Amino acid sequence: MASQGTKRSYEQMETDGERQNATEIRASVGKMIDGIGRFYIQMCTELKLSDYEGRLIQNSLTIERMVLSAFDERRNKYLEEHPSAGKDPKKTGGPIYKRVDRKWMRELVLYDKEEIRRIWRQANNGDDATAGLTHMMIWHSNLNDTTYQRTRALVRTGMDPRMCSLMQGSTLPRRSGAAGAAVKGVGTMVMELIRMIKRGINDRNFWRGENGRKTRSAYERMCNILKGKFQTAAQRAMMDQVRESRNPGNAEIEDLIFLARSALILRGSVAHKSCLPACVYGPAVASGYDFEKEGYSLVGIDPFKLLQNSQVYSLIRPNENPAHKSQLVWMACNSAAFEDLRVLSFIRGTKVSPRGKLSTRGVQIASNENMDAMESSTLELRSRYWAIRTRSGGNTNQQRASAGQISVQPAFSVQRNLPFDKPTIMAAFTGNTEGRTSDMRAEIIRMMEGAKPEEMSFQGRGVFELSDERAANPIVPSFDMSNEGSYFFGDNAEEYDN
């Protein structure tokens, strides 16, 4: 993207840094990872977990959730003011799984939030270390993106479920800051804005008074975040219109849905970061690795190297396929839920299948599930090659597409044709070009129609051997075009429920 120079890199967003050079960025990201790792080690000690239990991804998720809940100030305040039966607002906890007599047992633990905050700050040299908290939120978000298709949420806001490739980060909490905003897809931002506008339509006082002023500035800020994701002048001009509207209503909703559809071809720039579970960072720190000293990046080879040398386990339900569970977590670790499966298959070195073909449910185990038949197995999170994460949407291309997802959002900077089903997408653009945004709409449609099938995206960008740390010898991959490109292809993934 041309304006790259004016933006802070995501590592800076990730670490609240002012302008830093590459070495400083690597050190501050490393410091953040160190903090998460030290916190995780301490929690495993508190909970008396064995090494194996500490490497269980379900335990990692519970521990991450506990610290996120302990620092969720708004919710904590709300819980104190609106006490609900049987919930102690000062405590947080969740299921911890232990191996007892050759069987997995679930144990519900409860801790004072104050105590968890103390352990977290102690692991982070006394700081609140917001960057580390956001990092864990993005890992949870990436896992949700890989596990669930947001059909219901899309339909509720009037969008087409086939636009799911635009929904990265749709389950990120509001408090995820600049680093969170960077990884949100165009569809996620559109959905947040539509929800806001709908509230304004239904509630006369939404934009009024002292609160209304705050609401208005939040609305304009979200519009600017979305505008910054678009790469064409016409899309940005249309966002200006939406932002400046005196009284946002149905016309703005129409414009936003139009823009979301246009992003299936004229893709937005959305950041991709490899955020790993805390149970990967903990053992690495415990083994003596100093992330701050060595430096770390979320968008280069580092996460690949770390996963190459990590042992992570997962509980497996009786009829689940461990290899499929591994694929789910591998995609989440690489922030690749909406990437082209052919690119992923090449990088991973084994075939990556669409969601609907995987015999696996989510990673988390519900409290009512029976533990008797639970097994555990090693997650295979290694890769054959590594590639640089991208934040450009890439230019655009036609490809055989599917009944489910009709476009992709690249996660890796790797040369390819970008699949999208042009006739299906263009069919949504018939007729409606009147109104105050008509010239911009016409211009956007013209650009979409001009998108050429034979153009290559990320020209000359390749993948790298894991021994090639400096990215000196790019390998331009070859793809098996007979395979499906979309992950949520004609899909039956479970729906995400809060």
Rank of each mutant, 00 (worst) to 15 (best):
L166E: 07
T188D: 10
V343N: 12
V67C: 07
M66L: 02
E114V: 12
T146M: 12
R174G: 05
T360M: 06
L47Y: 06
L358S: 11
G435W: 04
D34C: 04
S176Q: 11
F458R: 10
R267P: 06
D203G: 08
R199A: 14
L166F: 06
P453F: 13
G35P: 06
S335Q: 12
D101V: 12
F464D: 03
Y40D: 05
E434V: 15
V29L: 02
N321Y: 15
D127T: 00
L264Y: 06
A471S: 06
N498Q: 06
G288D: 12
P83W: 07
P423N: 15
F489P: 10
R348D: 12
G268A: 14
G490M: 11
L108T: 08
R391S: 13
R436W: 13
H135A: 05
S314I: 05
E24W: 04
P303L: 14
R384T: 01
R118K: 00
E469F: 04
D302V: 05
T171E: 10
Y487D: 06
P95K: 07
I316R: 00
K184L: 03
S310A: 00
I116P: 03
F420S: 00
G282F: 12
L315C: 15
I57S: 05
F206V: 14
I388V: 14
P474K: 12
S383G: 04
K7S: 13
M189T: 03
R267I: 08
W386Q: 12
M222D: 03
I201M: 01
P474F: 07
I475G: 06
R99G: 13
S376H: 05
S345V: 12
M196S: 01
R195V: 13
M1A: 10
D88V: 12
M239Y: 02
E64R: 01
V299F: 14
M447N: 04
T62W: 06
L344F: 12
E449T: 02
P83F: 04
Q308K: 05
G228S: 14
W386C: 05
M239I: 05
A181S: 05
F489D: 10
Q364S: 15
V414W: 04
A387C: 11
E380L: 08
K325R: 13
E434M: 00
G404N: 09
G462Q: 10
L264T: 07
N142T: 13
R199K: 13
